[in-house]
Structure formats: structure tokens, C-alpha cells
Amino acid sequence: MTHNSETTLAGITARIRAIGRKLDAETLAESQRLYAPLHASEPASGVLVENDHPYGPDERHRLDVFRPDRPGARRPALLFVHGGGFVGGDKRRPGSPFNQHVGIWAARQGLVGVNMTYRLAPAHPWPAGPQDVGAAIRWIRNHANDLDVDPARVFVFGQSAGAAHVAAYIGHRQFHGAGGHGLAGGLLLSGVYDLVANDPRTVAVGYYGDDPARFAERSALPGIADAGVPLWVGVAELDPSRFERQALLLAGALLDSRRHLPRFVQLAGHNHLSGLLHLGLPGDVLGPEILRFLMECEPPSD
């Protein structure tokens, strides 16, 4: 790992604040450029990596698996669902540490990290996202013995469009299959959960379609509030305000349904993407919050 001094991190933090709430391709690229040198470029020590397990028939139905290289008991699995505006993104990219760094981080915490790709709009519109999330969860559970995974402790973590797909999977029971949702918990960072409440100009019509009459039935709310899955809800301090509103709508719906707020986290000093890019580095807030949530979801010991 190089250039990871406190001064460099402080400089990156200042630059992220200067960028502010702006969210476009240029901002996302700059955020990645700033953080990329801080992540290891060499193969991850102590982590076994298996790339491109197929979990379905499409060429993007692929999973990368990250495991600690030390023996141990059955471990929780953390499935990561990347963002990309419903039309882009990947589980890993040549020459970049992202999003592979999420799976590496998970394995170094004693988890089995699984990164997924999924089908993209406009070729694959709604409901391709929740269908693919469900297929990946079932693949993990079906291969739990091979992966040393505890099938009762499968968690899924989505960011941005990935969070929308995860929420849609949890909130629409038709995607769960005969075995139910199969999850011990879900983590949602900077996603959209209620299309009706969203500004129509920001709805990804290439994925959801352009008929507002269908937005309610394609929203994760209200179904996600009643699904019974423990949830963690996160948003970045410098997210565009629409993501803040969505996080609050979800938290409020969960409060109304369950009579208590979910674990709710605001990533101070971060924009829409930088909190995820900071994962595993000094001063990381996201990682410890994820681990705290997973511990809270642990079944009681005998």
C-alpha cells in the first residue's frame, strides 16, 4: 500500500468536501482517482480469491469469492451489490482496486466476501435487478458447504443502484422463492426505495420504465418494511439531497412498521461514492459500522 499517510487522507477529505454534493461521471471518476493509490495493488495477502463463478445463464451472472486463507468454523457471507446507475458498474475492473476491495476487506474481517455483477439496463429493465440478487443469494446458500459459509448468516450489502436492487429483492416476496428471502440482514447505502416520492426527473426510466403509474408497484416500499429482514440504512453527508430523503423515508417506514428505527448511519465528510472507496483505510467509518450490524444480527448462543 502506498501514499496512505494521514496528510494524504486529510488532503483527500478536503478535496471531497470541496467537490460537495455534485454527482456526475466526472465526480465519480475523480473520487476513484483520489483513493486508488491508497489501496494495495499487489495480490491480497491472507485472502483466497476465486473469480467468475457463474450463478446464472447471462454473461454478467458472475460472482467473485474472497475467503480467509486460514481454516475456521463456518463464516458469515457478505454479498456486495455494486452501483452504476442501473446501466454500468462491475464487481471488478482491470487496473482498479474497486470494487474488489470490498471482498478483500470482508475476508480480512473473517467473513466470506462475495462480489456480484448483474444484468444492466436498458437491455435488462425491471425486475432484472432483484431477480439477479435473489439468484446470487441462492447460489451462496446452495454452495455453503464448499465456501465454509453458515447458510443462516448470509448478508447482502448494496450501494446506490445496488442498494435499490437489494431493497427491491427484500421488499418483493415474489423474488424470494420457496425458501424465503434467505438473509440474516441487509445493508443499504445511498439507494432509492420509493419511486413515487422521488423527483420524476431523477427516476432511471431506462430501468424502471417511463410510466409513472408503475412506479408504486416497482418501489421497495412498503414491502421492505414488512419483510422482517434486519436492516442497516446508510447515507453519505454529501449525497445529493434526494438520497437523504430516500434514507429517511425508509427509516420512517421501518419505524412505523417495526416500532423502532433501524441502524442508521451517516458517513460524515463523504460523497455518494467516497465512503465506499474509503473502506478498509485508516479512519474508515463504514467498515466498523458494517461489522457492528453483523454482530447485532448474530443468533443468540446456546
Rank of each mutant, 00 (worst) to 15 (best):
A225S: 06
G185I: 05
D132W: 05
L277H: 00
I19T: 12
L188Y: 02
G158Y: 04
V205W: 02
V81C: 04
L78K: 12
V285T: 07
P127L: 01
N198H: 12
P300T: 10
Q32I: 11
R15I: 03
G191Y: 09
V114M: 10
R108S: 04
G191E: 07
A107C: 08
H61Q: 14
H278K: 06
G234R: 00
P76I: 13
L276C: 11
L78G: 11
H172M: 00
W232A: 08
R259D: 08
E296T: 05
I12T: 04
R62W: 06
L248K: 12
G228T: 01
D210F: 02
G83A: 12
H172P: 07
F80I: 13
V203H: 11
R242A: 13
S190M: 10
R173E: 15
L221I: 02
A77G: 01
D302M: 11
P300C: 08
D24K: 10
R33M: 15
H181F: 10
L195E: 01
A204K: 11
S160E: 07
E50K: 12
I290Y: 01
V149K: 06
A227W: 05
L120G: 07
D210H: 06
G20N: 00
W105Q: 12
Y193L: 03
S190R: 05
R21G: 04
P130G: 03
Q100I: 08
G11N: 11
Q266V: 15
V205N: 02
G129H: 11
T202L: 15
T7Y: 02
T7P: 01
Y35V: 10
A107G: 09
L276A: 12
L38M: 06
I12W: 06
A121Q: 11
H181D: 13
A247C: 04
P71G: 09
L63C: 04
I290C: 08
V205S: 05
T8H: 08
M1S: 01
